[in-house]
Amino acid sequence: MLDIRNLHASVDGKPILRGLDLHVGTGEVHAIMGPNGSGKSTLAQVLAGRDSFTVEDGSVSWDGVDLLAMPTEERARAGLFLAFQYPVEIPGVSNAYFLKAAVNAVRRHRGEPEYDAMDFLKRVKAEMKAVGMREEFLYRSVNEGFSGGEKKRNEVLQMALLEPRLAILDETDSGLDIDALRTVADGVNRLRSPERSMIVITHYQRLLDYIVPDHVHVLSRGRIVRSGGRELAHELEERGYGWIDEAQATPAAQGAAS
């Protein structure tokens, strides 16, 4: 489904991803863990099409299509969804307008009829209930003045409405207390399906108690350095990230010395 090969990306000339390989099959949930600065968020942003990052090398094939050649909005319409670590506040744009515009952009692309106001409200209210959001959040500006948990719920709400084929959750757990984490994770779990792949990016193992991944990868210095099952997450929890960095650094240091 998603095939990332030798991906190199930089920002302002500074390399961040340095030869990343990852394969995500249809319906699989992959967790990517790693210390701060390892390139987790960069990977998410590059996949979503943020142009402040420069792809220097490598390829990303999505069901045989060159993902990197698609503009951001086309990726979204084709079913890629990024849940932001820091959802953006947009004063003056009501959440209702924003959600409807997004849903209809995707529906148009799929050749489905656009929702009218009534159908849309019915649908959105049902989904809001499922993620524990009150209706008033429809009429407030997008994310403006939302708490951390409310913003993340709003991300999961968008994900539910847009029904992506590939969802990337970028540190969806950051800044959440345990109750909010549980609600958000429940929302995500509800969306798991054999047709939907997910990449769950997180610093902490905690989230993976709720969203149980099929595969866990460790990202360090812009590359996947270990892959395994759930147990890898527990290992990281126990040992921290230090040993990964050391394992990485040692051969490089030796290479430099010789």
Binding site: A48, G49, R50, S52, P71, T72, E73, R75, A76, R77, F81, L82, F84, P87, V88, I90, P91, G92, V93, F98, A101, A102, A105, V106, H109, S141, Q158, L162
Partner: peptide, 25 residues
């Protein structure tokens, strides 16, 4: 704001629509 623009585009709004929306807002 580039962050706002990117956010809207990741939700399927084309760039022109996103720019116009942010301007109007």
């Amino acid at each position: 704001d580039e962050d706002s623009l990117f956010y809207l585009r990741t939700r399927g709004l084309d760039e022109a629509h996103a720019r116009n929306l942010l301007t109007y807002a």
